[in-house]
């Protein structure tokens, strides 16, 4: 039977050994004594990122970045790309550019204008509604409105030209209780 002393000695040894094992797995492969205690055992399995700073959560910056496209070819806006594609090196750089402009006092519109000047209109997630771009915004609505108007006009004309229909039943008020019961009986026979 194991004594109390040997039990606690074993536990202490295990704890010390466990800590040593933990330190070995957390440390760098080379056992760098300068390495941080919370170092990952396989750091290359995770992308390395800069720490989040206050500007990263700024609502104005997020709004601006949603309107600007990342130029890495991903087809996403800067904010979405930098918070989704962690292999992209372009969106973090564009983000820093937005933050810098914002910190220099530029308004959202001025930031967007600066990007358009530097990268062209393609940097915008949606074309500005002016000039030829207006066609992009208006053509669907105009086409639907025109088609709807035409459809309504045709229907009205046909309605006007149609022969006068027989009087319309307007509800239970025009039907006696007896007729209603007969109708329901007849209909129920059809159903069953």
């Amino acid at each position: 039977m194991i004594s109390r002393r040997s039990f606690f000695t074993s536990i202490s040894a295990l704890l010390v050994g466990g800590r040593a094992l933990h330190a070995a797995t957390q440390g760098s492969p080379g056992g760098d004594p300068e390495a941080p205690a919370d170092r990952l055992s396989i750091p290359e399995a995770v992308q390395s990122r800069p720490a989040v700073v206050e500007g990263d959560n700024n609502g104005i910056i997020q709004t601006v970045e949603h309107k600007l496209k990342c130029t890495c070819g991903c087809n996403l806006d800067i904010f979405t790309c930098r918070t989704t594609d962690f292999t992209c090196t372009v969106s973090p750089a564009l983000h820093r550019q937005v933050v810098a402009l914002h910190e220099n006092g530029a308004t959202p519109d001025q930031i967007i204008d600066a990007f358009v000047t530097e990268y062209g209109e393609e940097i915008l997630m949606a074309p500005p509604p002016e000039g030829f771009n207006l066609a992009g915004y208006l053509v669907p609505g105009l086409a639907i409105t025109a088609a709807g108007t035409l459809l309504a006009a045709i229907l009205m004309r046909r309605q006007a030209a149609a022969p006068v229909p027989a009087p319309v039943l307007t509800g239970a008020a025009n039907v006696s209780a007896e007729d209603q019961a007969r109708l329901e009986r007849a209909l129920s026979e059809v159903v069953d």
Binding site: K69, D77, E121
Partner: peptide
């Protein structure tokens, strides 16, 4: 001119 038509549009 190249443009982007994304979610805002």
């Amino acid at each position: 001119v190249k443009i982007t038509v994304g979610p805002p549009f």
